[in-house]
């Protein structure tokens, strides 16, 4: 009987204690997986939260899906890297105040054996043509992310439609997962530098084939979701977040040094105009 009593009291205690702290001042940030996987946000968001008292819910998805969430008013702001789509998003009235935030570049990675015989730092379009010609395995995100859209843009420049080819495989996963898959399967892959550096020590077979090419610049932008379109948005928080990210000296210092110690180079560069 005493046993039953204790159990009941314990249950009531468990059920009535506020187990999760109340979060009324929340901002929903839909971000690309590449920034999330780098770990940068986990360092700078707590700074923002501490300073403002806001709670930021980071939903890591591809750029395409992030914008889809924005179009439904399910996110307050976006951190994405798909410039042409972003412009379209703003033109359609879903977003306002786009601010370029940070950048790095895309890399073409491939197996050390380099079956497509691509010359180091040759033109990316030519490189894609060689991959297609030699039917070398190419691993694509296939998830409508910024990286995926960039990759499709290069294929179209090369005049190739890789869809349905046996040497062209889509993973539907984030950047990190897709890199691991390409490494395991000895495939070529287009990746952002940030995720590559984060995962570098795990990637045994992939080597950089093309980097530091001007056309492969990768710009991440912050966009407020248009508060006139949806009534439930936390636009104040979104504005504050963007302001903090683009002006705070603390953030700038962190970005400048982020990854430097571990990889010998920073993962992201500040976008300054």
């Amino acid at each position: 009987m005493a046993n039953k009593f204790t159990v009941t009291i314990l249950l009531i205690l468990i059920l009535t204690t506020p187990i999760f702290s109340a979060q009324n001042k929340t901002i929903i940030l839909a971000t690309t997986t590449s920034v999330q996987d780098s770990g940068l946000l986990e360092v700078i968001i707590p700074l923002f939260e501490k300073k403002t008292g806001y709670f930021v819910k980071t939903i890591a998805v591809g750029s395409g899906q992030a914008m889809a969430l924005g179009k439904r008013g399910e996110a307050d702001l976006l951190l994405v890297h798909s410039p042409e789509e972003e412009i379209k998003f703003i033109k359609e009235g879903y977003g306002i105040n786009r601010k370029s935030f940070i950048y790095n570049d895309y890399l073409l990675l491939g197996p050390k054996s380099n079956p497509a015989k691509i010359i180091y730092n040759e033109n990316i379009v030519e490189a894609f043509k060689k991959i297609s010609k030699t039917k070398s395995l190419f691993i694509s995100r296939g998830d409508n992310s910024g990286t995926h859209i960039k990759e499709l843009y290069i294929w179209s420049k090369a005049g190739i439609n890789p869809n349905g080819e046996r040497w062209y495989q889509e993973t539907g996963n984030g950047m990190g997962q897709t890199l691991i898959i390409a490494d395991e399967k000895d495939g070529y892959i287009l990746s952002d530098r940030g995720t590559y550096l984060t995962l570098k020590r795990r990637l045994k077979n992939l080597a950089i084939i093309i980097d530091k090419e001007e056309s492969l610049k990768n710009v991440y932008s912050l966009i407020e979701v248009n508060p006139d379109k949806f009534k439930n948005l936390n636009n104040r928080g979104a504005k504050l977040f963007i302001e903090f990210m683009t002006t705070s000296k603390e953030v700038k210092d962190i970005i400048k040094s982020f990854g430097k110690k571990e990889f010998g180079e920073p993962i992201f560069y500040l976008f300054s105009q």
């Binding site: 997986t33 819910k57 939903i59 691991i180 795990r202």
Partner: peptide
């Protein structure tokens, strides 16, 4: 849940995230 760190990240979603970050 959205797999938010420290808030809605649970064992299963954390396993996925850490795998894609290479934190095996």
């Amino acid at each position: 849940g959205g797999n938010i760190k420290g808030y809605t990240r649970v064992l299963t979603t954390a396993t996925i995230t850490e795998t894609s970050k290479g934190n095996f």
